[in-house]
Simulated scan of single mutants.
Amino acid sequence: MNKPYNIILILMLIMNVVIGGALFHQTSLLTEYKSKINNLELKVEDLDGVIKERIVPGLREVSNKDDWITRNTYTKNGKVILEVMEDPSLRAGKSFGYIFSFSEPFETFNRKELAIYAYHKETGDKITVVPPKIITNPSSGYPSLERFIAFFKIPISGLWRFEAEIDGEFYADVILLVKE
């Protein structure tokens, strides 16, 4: 009677070893799959970042160039990054002062070239209102470019799109109505 009991114990021990080996193998497969899933999640996050940082702003830039609705702010990711305060008596043919209020940190602009161009809706004319210049200091009394002041004359009345560029790349734009 002792022998069948020993055989049963040996069989149970062999089954435990086999099951343990199978469980160990499954655990290693699960770890490998988890690692692959984590890598895929990182790649998806990178893709999300690319979509948010490059593709969506590019689409917004294209759509803004066809959108000629008067607005003095530009919003990116739900946050106003540029606001232009123009003289209420703004008229064509006369020099006026404009305050370009950039809300991003100074590091966004430091040692980069800023230029502002204006495009007339009707004629397509382009004028340089702020020639390209390297930014090395924030606005006087401010930590960034909250009060970037420019004086210039718009030659003809109508809708004008003022486009700010950083290092030759689109940054933001506003649409202003210049009266006659």
Rank of each mutant, 00 (worst) to 15 (best):
T31M: 11
K36W: 08
N38F: 11
N38G: 08
N39D: 15
L40Q: 12
L40D: 13
E41V: 14
L42M: 11
K43Y: 04
V44Q: 12
E45Y: 06
D48Q: 14
D48R: 11
V50Q: 09
R54H: 14
R54K: 15
P57R: 03
E61R: 10
N64L: 13
K65P: 00
D66Y: 15
R71N: 04
R71H: 04
N72E: 08
T75S: 12
T75N: 11
N77R: 11
G78T: 01
V80M: 08
V84R: 01
M85C: 01
E86N: 07
D87H: 10
S89H: 08
A92C: 03
G93R: 03
S95R: 13
F100N: 01
S101V: 01
E104K: 09
F106E: 01
E107W: 02
T108E: 11
N110M: 03
K112N: 14
E113W: 05
L114F: 09
Y117H: 08
A118V: 02
A118N: 00
Y119Q: 06
K121R: 14
T123F: 05
D125P: 03
K126P: 07
I127C: 05
T128V: 12
V130T: 09
V130S: 13
P131V: 07
P132T: 02
K133L: 10
I134G: 07
I135R: 06
N137E: 15
P138T: 05
S139I: 01
S140H: 07
Y142I: 04
S144K: 03
L145I: 04
I149A: 09
F152E: 07
I154W: 02
L159A: 02
E163R: 12
I166Q: 02
I166K: 03
F170K: 05
Y171G: 03
Y171R: 06
A172V: 03
D173R: 06
I175T: 13
L177M: 11
